[in-house]
Amino acid sequence: MLEYRVTARRIDSHGSEAEAKSARLVLDTDLAGRDDAFNPAEMLLASLAACLLKGAERVAPMLRFDLRGIEVSLHGVRQDSPPRMVRIDYAIVVDTDETDQRLDLLHRNLRKYGTISNTLAEAIELVGTIRRKD
C-alpha cells in the first residue's frame, strides 16, 4: 500500500499553508475568502484534476495514445445543510488526432485507475466527458 503525508498549519486568520515533500501550498482558510489561494472545495476539485492529468501521463504510453495536450475543467455543487459536495462535473479536452473510440478508451482508463476519481465516485455523483480539442 502507498501512503501519503501532508501537514498543514494556520498562518493567521487569513490563511494557512500545507506542506508535502518539499512543496508548499497556501490555503484559503479566511472566512471572507481570498483570491490568491484555493479554498477547501477548490482543492478537492484541483485534486481530481491532478488525478486525471497524472492518469493521462501514466496510461498514454501504455495505450500508445498520441497525447499532445490535455485540459480539465471542473464544476462542483455544494449543498448547505449538511455542508458537502453532492456533484462534480468535469470536461476533459484532449489535443490529439486519435479516433473517438480511442478517446473513450483513454477516458475509461482515467476513471478506472484514478485514486481520487475512484474515491470521489464512491461518495458523490461524478459525471465527466472527454472530447478532442477543436
Rank of each mutant, 00 (worst) to 15 (best):
S22Q: 12
D35N: 06
I124T: 02
P61N: 04
V72T: 09
T115R: 07
A37T: 05
D35T: 10
C51A: 02
Q79L: 11
R108W: 02
R132Q: 08
G15K: 05
M1V: 08
A32N: 08
R84V: 01
D35R: 06
D80V: 01
T7K: 14
T96S: 10
A20Q: 11
D95A: 15
T96Q: 06
V59T: 03
E3Q: 15
V26W: 09
M1C: 05
H14G: 08
V127K: 12
K133P: 07
R68F: 00
D80S: 12
H107Y: 09
L53A: 08
E3W: 15
L74M: 13
D12R: 01
A46K: 04
R102H: 06
D134T: 15
S13E: 15
Q79M: 13
G69W: 03
D97G: 13
L120Y: 04
Q101P: 00
I92M: 10
A50H: 00
S73D: 15
Y90V: 05
F65E: 08
S81T: 08
R10M: 01
E17D: 11
S47K: 07
L106E: 10
R102N: 09
Y4Q: 11
P83F: 03
L110K: 07
A56S: 05
D66C: 05
E3G: 14
L103S: 00
I88C: 14
R34P: 00
L31G: 02
H107F: 08
